[in-house]
Amino acid sequence: MSSKSARQLSASFFSASERCLTERRCGDESLAIIPVPGIVCGVFSIEIGFKSLLMAAGDAAKGHNLLKLFEKLDSSIQDEIIKGVGLDRVCFMKELGEMADSFTQWRYVYEHEEVGISLNFLHQLAKATQHTAERVVGF
């Protein structure tokens, strides 16, 4: 797969995540989201976004650990994503470390008694990754 194809796939999962995590009116007038598919798609969009950036730099990446993938990115790309999220590096790395294995955890959420994730950080990171990948890889 090319970096551009990976970037487009990442954008598709980002869109799916946004659709699932956007509150919508249900028949009884309550608001609802579809959390687990939204989280899985959001985290996967970040993973593929990171991989598209690595591919564009001529690097290959395997695995689902977001922290390990992020650490392989060029420091200027890391800085751009961190700035897009709006945190300092220390706070960003702490948040990313806490959700590093989220794709596996949330994909198999039924196997865990308790899982958690910051939806705000997930959304900000996914959005910043999309912006950076679009600039670097194109669309």
Rank of each mutant, 00 (worst) to 15 (best):
S5L: 14
R7C: 12
R7I: 02
R7P: 00
L9G: 12
S12Q: 08
S12F: 10
F14G: 03
S15K: 14
A16C: 09
S17E: 01
C20E: 13
E23T: 11
E23C: 10
C26N: 15
D28M: 04
E29P: 04
L31C: 06
I33R: 11
P35R: 15
P35F: 15
V36K: 13
P37K: 05
G38E: 08
C41Q: 15
G42C: 06
V43T: 07
S45E: 09
I46Y: 09
I46Q: 03
E47F: 07
F50E: 00
S52N: 08
A56D: 13
D59E: 15
A60P: 01
K62Q: 10
G63S: 11
H64W: 04
N65G: 01
L66K: 01
L66E: 01
K68L: 13
E71P: 07
I81V: 11
I81G: 03
I82T: 02
V85W: 00
L87W: 00
C91D: 15
F92L: 03
S102V: 09
S102N: 14
S102C: 13
F103E: 06
T104F: 05
T104S: 09
Y108K: 08
Y108A: 08
E111W: 03
H112E: 14
H112R: 03
E114L: 08
V115K: 13
F121M: 08
F121Y: 00
H123I: 12
H123R: 14
H123L: 07
Q124P: 00
T129H: 01
T129M: 04
Q130M: 06
T132K: 06
A133F: 00
E134L: 09
E134F: 04
R135V: 08
G138Y: 06
